[in-house]
Structures are given as C-alpha cells and as structure tokens.
Amino acid sequence: MSLDALYQEIILDHYRRPHHAGLREPYDAETRHVNPTCGDEITLRVHLSGTTAGDTVADVSYDAEGCSISQASVSVMSDLVIGKPVADAMTLHDEFLTLMQGRGAVEPDEDTLEDAVAFAGVAKFPARIKCALLGWMAWKDAVAQATRAPMSKEETA
C-alpha cells in the first residue's frame, strides 16, 4: 500500500495552506462535528444567498483541528462548493461520498470533483474515510439547518 497514493501532493499542499480557513460573518448556520475515534473537531459555517431559482453557497468558513486528510478535504471542499447552487454542491457531496465508499473501485470524475479526485486513494484506507468526510458532513448538516431554519427552530435546538 503506497503512502504516496494516499498523500497526494495536492492533499499535502492544502494541508499546509488551507483555503477559506477561519470563521467568518455573515453565516446562516454553524455546525460542530467531531470524529469520536480520534477527537478531530471542526466548526463550520455556511452562508447561503437566496434567489428565486434556489440558494447558492455564498461562503463556507471553518475552524478545524485534525490530520492532513481531514484538513485538506475541508479546504478542497470549500473551493468546490463556494459559488455553486446548493443543489449542485449537494450533488458533489453525493459524488464524493460515493467515491469514499467505493473501496477504491470508483473512478472519480475530474471534471466535477476537480482537486477532490486526489482523495480517491483514501477509499483504500478504511480508517481514514471518516477523516476525509468530516468537513463534508459538517457542511451538509449546516446546509440542512440553514435551509430549514426559519420554519422549525426547535428541530435544530
């Protein structure tokens, strides 16, 4: 099992210089996710800008402590989803999840996943899949909260 298959240069670059890091205003929802096995944590904020045609991801900001895989993954994810319609970003989430759960048998689509294809190798390291998904899960949760927040506050409380 080659280490370099896991630690692609793109991943190490994002780890050393994460994009969109730090918590910013304004935001519509904030989530805090933990990887209970290692204690890695992320606080992530999502800001959506609404249009009649549907919401767009205006900003993703975060404060995270974790390994290279989890840090790089949230950095790449932010690059990918910021500026995209929520529905399109959610499709990317699903695509990334499929890639991670594919045991290395799923061929990633570089046109849609861009830098995130670098994580294809993670799927062969079962203990690290959670690391790669930590940011994505926090983001999905935040979007869910932001899009239903006005209607049911008690649901998220």
Binding site: L3, C38, D40, G66, S68, R128
Partner: peptide, 18 residues
C-alpha cells in the same frame, strides 16, 4: 498529526494507536 504519524508507521508494518 497522530493519524498521519500512525499511517506512515503502518506502511512500515508498525502498529501503534493514534
């Protein structure tokens, strides 16, 4: 990060906890 330490060690056959 300990995860990364243990991943590299594992590639040399060394099993530790992270």
């Amino acid at each position: 990060h300990p995860h990364d330490v243990s991943q590299v060690l594992d590639s040399y056959g060394v099993a530790v906890r992270a």
